Simulated scan of single mutants.
Amino acid sequence: MAFKGEIQKNYDEFLEQRAIEAYMLALSALNVIGMRDGSEATFGKGYNVLPIWKDRMNAKTLVPTPNCDVIYSMNYLNLKETGPLAF
């Protein structure tokens, strides 16, 4: 029974590690959802809406890990609404 405290401690650490892993795995998906929602609120919704940054990004741009050498555009498709698309 001397190991019961160690078992509980290891189990608590295991749960903490799983919570951190779940957060890290969901972070990029949540970020894309947030960018999509912001884009749709600002520019409108639809696969034919294509926001383009006319200036290069910098450290103040609210996009994760922007590359300052690229002109970005972002489009979000919802195939549940439109069905298959061919471009």
Rank of each mutant, 00 (worst) to 15 (best):
M1H: 09
A2G: 08
A2S: 10
F3Q: 11
F3Y: 10
E6P: 00
I7Y: 11
I7T: 06
Q8S: 14
Q8D: 13
Q8V: 15
K9E: 08
K9N: 08
K9M: 07
K9L: 09
N10A: 15
N10H: 12
N10F: 11
D12G: 04
E13H: 03
E13C: 08
E13F: 12
F14D: 10
F14G: 05
F14S: 11
F14I: 05
L15D: 06
L15K: 15
E16F: 07
E16K: 14
Q17T: 12
Q17A: 13
Q17L: 07
R18H: 08
R18Y: 10
R18D: 03
R18G: 00
R18E: 14
A19C: 09
I20M: 01
E21V: 01
A22K: 12
A22M: 08
Y23T: 07
Y23M: 08
M24L: 05
L25A: 05
L25W: 01
L25H: 01
A26L: 06
A26K: 07
L27G: 00
S28E: 12
A29I: 06
A29F: 05
A29T: 11
L30Q: 13
L30Y: 09
L30K: 13
N31D: 13
N31V: 14
V32E: 10
V32G: 05
V32Q: 12
I33D: 07
G34E: 15
G34R: 15
G34A: 15
G34S: 14
M35A: 04
M35C: 05
G38V: 04
S39E: 02
S39W: 07
S39T: 12
S39C: 10
E40P: 00
E40W: 06
A41V: 06
A41Q: 10
T42H: 04
T42F: 11
T42P: 01
G44A: 02
G44W: 09
K45C: 04
K45H: 09
Y47M: 14
Y47I: 15
N48I: 09
N48P: 00
V49P: 01
V49C: 03
V49Y: 06
V49D: 04
L50S: 13
L50F: 08
P51L: 03
P51R: 03
I52C: 08
I52E: 05
W53R: 03
W53P: 00
K54I: 08
K54Y: 08
K54L: 11
D55S: 04
R56Y: 13
M57T: 06
M57V: 04
M57E: 03
N58K: 10
A59C: 06
K60L: 14
L62E: 13
V63Y: 12
P64T: 15
P64S: 14
T65Y: 11
T65N: 15
P66Q: 04
P66G: 02
D69R: 01
D69P: 01
V70L: 00
V70D: 00
V70I: 14
I71F: 07
Y72I: 03
Y72S: 01
S73Q: 06
M74N: 00
M74L: 10
M74C: 07
N75P: 02
N75V: 09
Y76M: 04
L77E: 00
N78K: 02
L79A: 01
L79I: 02
E81L: 06
E81M: 02
T82Q: 02
P84G: 13
L85A: 07
A86D: 12
F87K: 13
F87S: 14
F87L: 14
F87R: 12
